[in-house]
Design a protein around this nucleic acid. Structure first.
Lengths: 118, 118, 118, 118
DNA sequence: GTGGTCTAGACCACT
DNA sequence: GTGGTCTAGACCACC
């Protein structure tokens, strides 16, 4: 994985894992690979990987059992708020752009509906 | 106005005028300034301006009355398709982004509604 | 009962009986089992048990009636001072700890009241 | 400083600093020494010290300004809850001990009052 | 100077 | 095996 040098690697890794959870690549309750495996996979140091995981646990995204492994939370609320967190920027950018071209709320909504129907 | 040298100027002028129409800066049915005035305003050759206007007329965006001047079309359909043309990219980018995070169509719609309500 | 080899057994037996009195396991005025029974119960020599009892009597914790048996004192003052003797360490440790964290007397009192109310 | 090998050093350092804040050794709003200085003072690695400080910041006990340093919070509430947090164990241990010897709530309170008067 | 992050390699407790 | 902690030493961004 390629990292943006201007933002901490462990944050980027967290985002990557969050995205996997939100998209269902990592199912709820599923076991997350060990930090050692993940550190190799992401090509980072073990400590960096551990930091990413401990932060994720603190946020309630995963939970950990000593000597066993980490698991994706089964709390639907957490996953839902994850989605909200990750799409907030997209939505704002879109709506601002549309309003900038002169679209009203109803027009924006209608446009989205039409686009989704395709 | 500053032009991108890689794309024909008359196209850029057309886009500028379309945007004015779409955003309401130029109201439906409103008279467009003369090509002479516009050519000075945009800092381009009279021929270039004329080309832009004739293309706009061909697209039905404006219509011309001999000896009177040019006017923005009053056909709502044309204006609406203009909007579509200009926002297509935004919508696609947004929807693809949302789907990439795992949102379903209903979720996307709901999210937009919520964001618009704010 | 298991004894600490570094402190005289008769003292440890005395403490055990005192604790029983203080906690109410041995009620005020209740008859204490005979030294013979107690010596077996504690697994110690009869002399050791006798020493413990005579010391307890000397302290006024129990009193003996020839040919009848021994009884826990009915003097509330004695029992109260027993409690004091046994809890003195706890109180000092607690108050020193609290002052070490910077609590004032009033704060300590208030904290205890709150904790007791729970 | 001497550390208990069974509990993470960074936690012990956090407790030490919390205690300094609670007792007023570190005044509210006062600047905390740099992590480098502190790491030498405590005789631990820079990373360990940094972890202790970042956890303290997360708990709101200190706040940090990049390139400037860290400062004790000025929020009285935080400091007060710190006190509660640190004395909770002491109080519980004390009251349980007292009740174990047979003291009633009133007796405990009275005993504390007497001990404080000394 | 300050705090923040990353790597490399080690040891520990738990299962 | 697992996660958790610690050390040593390095580089970066900020002020």
């Amino acid at each position: 994985m390629k990292f943006n040098p201007t933002v901490p690697i462990y944050l980027q890794i967290m985002d990557s894992i969050k995205k996997d959870i939100v998209t269902g690549t990592l199912a709820h309750g599923e076991r997350v690979e060990s930090v050692r495996v993940l550190s190799e996979k992401f090509g980072v140091n073990l400590n960096t990987m551990q930091r990413a995981c401990s932060e994720l646990e603190r946020e309630g995204v995963i939970y950990t059992q000593r000597g066993v492994g980490s698991f994706v939370t089964e709390d639907e609320k957490v996953v839902h708020s994850l989605k909200q967190e990750m799409c907030g920027g997209l939505v704002d950018e879109f709506i601002n752009g549309m309003r900038g071209i002169g679209f009203t709320n109803n027009e924006i909504l209608k446009t989205v509906e039409e686009a989704l129907a395709k």
